[in-house]
Amino acid sequence: MHDTSNELNTEHQVRNQLRKKLRKQRVKRLITTFILLALIVFGLYVYTFYKENSRFPWARVKEQVSTVKEVEAKVYENVFSTTIDLSGFVEPIEIQKVILRAAGAVTDVFVKEGDQVQKGDVLIALDNTSQLYEVANLQAELERIKLTGSQRELELTELRLKSAMNRLDYTKAIANFDGVVAEVNVSVGDYFDAGSSAMTIIDRSRLKATVEIDEIDMQYVQLGQKAVLYFDSYSESSIEAEVSYIPMLGRYTNQGIGVMDVEITIANPPNSVAPGYTFEGAITSEGETKLILLPQSAVTTTRGTSTVTKKLADGSTVKVPVTVKYLGEGISQLLSGDLKVGDTVIIRRTDTSASAFAAIGGGTGGGPGMRAF
């Protein structure tokens, strides 16, 4: 029995030692896992910080230093012809939505889609029985009044007869111009209410388009000026158009630009160019224009007065009052001022960087050279 008790104690000790060993192994694994996770998180943080700031988190932030740099530029002349790009779609010069002005059943449709019509042609007729009866009745009454009635009765009856004849005319739809039937939405036997559209007539002898032209370019556009248009449906050559209408009022776009909706017209367009087709094209102003140009960044405007800094032959500088017109893309046109082609103007620029010390004199390179604009 004593031996059995010793065996149990030994087994119990072995089990306790095994549990302690397993517990230590679990603690080591947990610590290792936490260390690995911490290293991964730290590595991601360092990578993200470096990517956003171009430096490590423990690196000292370099103070930025600002310095003013003077850059020289030349006043120069440019000779060019103005080309204004166009795009849009064409539509008929005239469109008539044939509206029925009376209500009733359709008794006749005299044309079909594609037919040519002349101004004044009758296109559609409605049942006019009641209108004919009204006109005939008033004509008979007018004859009686001429014999036995008063002058006032005569005048009123004549007005009633004129109104009735107008209502009789309303039972017919008439073409307003020479053209072609583009659409028919009515058949014999249909019932139409007054004001309904039953047919569309277009004049394809000329096509028109409304193009948007920037306010800067409008100085080069005038009535009768030629435009060249290109259609995907007409690959043989370009098509000539003409500026036919310039409105008195411009408009303001959502982008803050003033524009004009100018109308151009194509005379005798080819059959392959149909209303609704799109085009690209241009208006080119005749002759060449000489402009004296300088960088807009050389111009300083204070209280409505513009000046530039002009470099003299002896190296000194002087402020010169000027009048300029901005043309876009950083370039201005010289309108007036004591400047000529070849003069040097000074552009003052602020350079802010961590290495601005080099621009002040700490670097090995020379000063800025002349820029070509």
Rank of each mutant, 00 (worst) to 15 (best):
K310C: 12
S66G: 15
E11A: 13
G337C: 05
I264E: 06
V111L: 07
L39D: 11
V221T: 02
N254I: 12
V68I: 10
G224R: 02
T300R: 11
N78G: 05
G149I: 08
A372C: 09
I347N: 00
E240V: 15
A102V: 09
E242N: 13
E134G: 08
I292M: 15
V68L: 15
E63A: 13
D214K: 02
V14F: 06
L161N: 10
D115F: 03
K119S: 00
V90W: 01
V345H: 02
L335E: 11
L327N: 04
V322D: 03
L132K: 15
A227F: 08
D108I: 12
Q17K: 12
N6E: 13
S197K: 01
G88N: 07
N16E: 03
L229R: 09
T323Y: 03
V109C: 02
N268D: 14
E236Q: 02
G369L: 07
A356N: 11
V184T: 07
D232N: 10
E183Q: 09
G330R: 11
R144P: 06
R26H: 10
A136M: 00
V65R: 15
F89S: 09
G369K: 03
G276F: 01
K162V: 08
A358I: 13
T289N: 13
R60K: 00
D115W: 03
Y245N: 06
R23Q: 15
I346C: 10
A267F: 12
Y170W: 13
T364W: 12
D3H: 11
E113L: 00
R26D: 10
G114C: 04
T278I: 01
S233N: 14
W58M: 07
R206D: 14
S237T: 06
F279S: 01
T210K: 14
K146R: 15
E242W: 08
A175R: 02
E134R: 07
A209G: 12
E7Q: 09
L154N: 10
L30H: 11
L156F: 10
I213R: 05
A359V: 13
E286C: 04
